[in-house]
């Protein structure tokens, strides 16, 4: 390598690539150029603070007790909820299994909520991505990413205490003893993936739970089995308490003097691949926050506060959609 005489100003680069090629060539620069233009846009045409408009359909599956399909842009998730019966006497030779905490949740005005749901595993959440939803996901065992998202969804569901144990208990009509439980199998299947699977999956799970109607069950003393009334009119809705919605963000650092940090709401697949830093806020009713996650980069607290603001705005959009499709929230 030799040093040349003082460099003349570089000639304008005569190589120009069509946008699609440039996107593949240098994805980070491609995104940065978009964000640095005025007004700042994203390759998809959205503003950095615009979420994709969601759509919701419920009760389209024949064999599920509750179901919902949520689409945000090109990400679509179908969720089905099915109830099966966990008999306390089953598999234990007729003995009833008592939990170590000694609480079976009775009395105390229905307090001790969430414990049975958590301890007995009455809610089984799963996210299936191996459906050919995007080119990286083949049928087969769930990838690490899918397992991680499943774990997050499950944690959110339990921590928000949306499902009460009381609605899942099956009682002996005479003694008011808990003889069995409903177990809810919540299966979310991703049909199409273009980034931000968490928000769509969570919304579909919540909508499916809200639309779930379980048969009315009771413990038959003579046969010692749980039996249900077949009439559809006797089905009861699950008592889902309140609403919670997640909002995910990706953060990119353009560098000091070039725009600093930009927060992108509802990132799509391309943006998720470029940005390392992520924030997720779970907003509750009344502008409250239930869960915040941040990772992948170093940032100011002000960024997180900005994300919380956007999440509470987004909550209102979801709330309105749910009210339109499912009726007023209980």
């Amino acid at each position: 390598m030799t040093t040349a005489p003082p460099p003349s100003p570089p000639p304008p680069n005569p190589l120009s690539f069509p946008p699609a090629t440039f996107q593949k060539l240098a994805p980070k620069i491609f995104l940065e150029r978009h964000l640095q233009s005025t007004p700042a846009t994203r390759p998809s045409g959205r503003n950095p603070d615009t979420f994709r408009t969601p759509s919701l359909h419920t009760n389209s599956l024949s064999h599920a007790h509750g179901s919902a399909v949520v689409r945000t842009g090109d990400t679509a998730v179908v969720c089905g909820v099915r109830g099966e019966v966990l008999s306390l006497a089953a598999g234990t030779g007729g003995r009833i299994v008592v939990l170590r905490t000694g609480e079976d949740g009775r009395g105390k005005n229905g307090e001790g909520e969430g414990d049975e749901v958590r301890e007995r595993g009455l809610v089984v959440t799963n996210l299936e991505m191996g459906t050919g939803c995007s080119r990286d996901y083949h049928p087969g065992p769930p990838t690490d990413f899918a397992q991680a998202v499943t774990a997050r969804l499950h944690r959110l569901l339990l921590s928000n205490k949306l499902i009460s144990s009381q609605s899942l208990r099956i009682l002996d009509p005479n003694t008011e003893e808990v003889k069995a439980y409903w177990v809810l199998y919540i299966d979310a299947v991703v049909i199409s993936l273009d980034g931000n699977v968490l928000d769509a999956a969570w919304a579909s799970i919540l909508a499916a739970l809200r639309s779930t109607r379980l048969p009315q069950a009771y413990w038959d003393q003579d046969t010692e089995v749980v039996v249900c009334y077949p009439e559809v009119s006797r089905y009861k809705s699950l008592d889902v308490k309140g609403l919670a919605f997640t909002a995910s963000f990706a953060v990119i650092d353009l560098g000091a003097g070039k725009g600093g940090k930009v927060i992108l709401s509802d990132p799509d697949e391309f943006e998720e691949g470029v940005c390392g830093e992520r924030v997720m806020v779970c907003a509750l009713e009344g502008e409250k926050v239930g869960w915040i996650e941040k990772g992948g980069g170093v940032g100011q607290v002000a960024e997180v506060v900005e994300c919380v603001h956007r999440a509470t705005e987004r909550f209102k959009i979801w709330e309105q959609l749910f009210a339109e499709v499912l009726g007023s929230s209980g």
Partner: peptide
Amino acid sequence: MACARTGIVEERKVAKPI
């Protein structure tokens, strides 16, 4: 090929710019 900032020249098999 040369770097604009430092003037260092490196060797490559370069494509003729159109």
